[in-house]
Amino acid sequence: MRYTKSPQPFYIRNSAHIIIGAGLLFFGAVIFIYGSQYLFLKEANKTNGRVTGFIVPKGKSLKRPVIEFYTPDQQRHTYYHSEGTNPPQYGQGQEVTIYYNPTNPEEASLGYSFIPMIILSIFGLVFTGVGIAMRK
């Protein structure tokens, strides 16, 4: 009687390719985020705003700046930044450049948000590197 190995399941045979694919998906997410921010900033109006305070969302510990800015028609708008830092990146009363959608000034941004792109790039490098190492 001969002993034969049973075939390995698909996910084991192709685990290196699956991990490389996951890494490439992370890089794709970085490209998507950068592209969407680029398109927004390309069409956005630029103005100066002032940091009027900070909020700390429930269950969070990082202060997020609250920025007040005016459109050319002297309408006041408030922007709540989505990223917090410790210590705060901006000071109370500090003037900052803000970009807003001219048709909907409630859509605003402080420019490119590199934190998520850096995090996703690191994951992409790790997954792709591990997948390539597994192939060898």
Score class of each variant (00 low, 15 high):
P72G: 09
E95M: 12
I31Y: 11
V130T: 14
E106C: 01
L24V: 05
M117A: 10
F69T: 06
Q94Y: 03
E83T: 08
G84M: 04
E83V: 11
G84W: 00
P72C: 08
P57Y: 07
E95L: 12
V56T: 15
P87W: 08
G93M: 02
P102Y: 06
V66C: 03
T85V: 13
F127N: 03
F26Q: 02
V66T: 10
S15P: 00
N14I: 02
K46F: 07
P102L: 06
Q94A: 06
F114Y: 14
S113W: 02
F127E: 02
S109K: 09
G28Y: 03
F32Q: 14
V30I: 02
R2H: 11
G21K: 00
T4Y: 14
R13M: 10
K46T: 15
S113C: 06
G124P: 08
P9Q: 09
V126Q: 04
P9V: 08
Q92Y: 14
G93R: 02
E43F: 07
G21I: 00
K58W: 07
E106R: 13
T4E: 15
Y100G: 06
P9F: 06
S15Y: 08
N48L: 15
E106W: 00
Q37P: 02
I119P: 05
M134P: 04
S113A: 13
I67Q: 09
P57E: 10
I118L: 15
V126F: 14
G59D: 09
S109V: 09
L39I: 04
Y90H: 12
A108W: 08
G59T: 07
V66R: 09
E68H: 04
F40I: 03
N14V: 04
K63F: 05
R13F: 05
E106F: 01
Y11V: 02
T52W: 01
Q92G: 07
M134S: 08
I119M: 13
I18T: 05
K63W: 03
H17L: 11
A16Y: 12
G35V: 02
F54N: 01
T52K: 10
G91R: 15
Q75C: 09
G91N: 15
E107N: 15
Y100R: 03
S6P: 13
M117W: 07
L120N: 11
Y70R: 10
N14H: 15
K63P: 05
H77C: 09
F32P: 08
S121V: 05
E107M: 13
L62A: 15
D73A: 12
I20N: 01
E43A: 14
N14C: 09
L110D: 04
G131Q: 11
G59S: 11
L125M: 10
F69M: 07
T47V: 11
I122V: 13
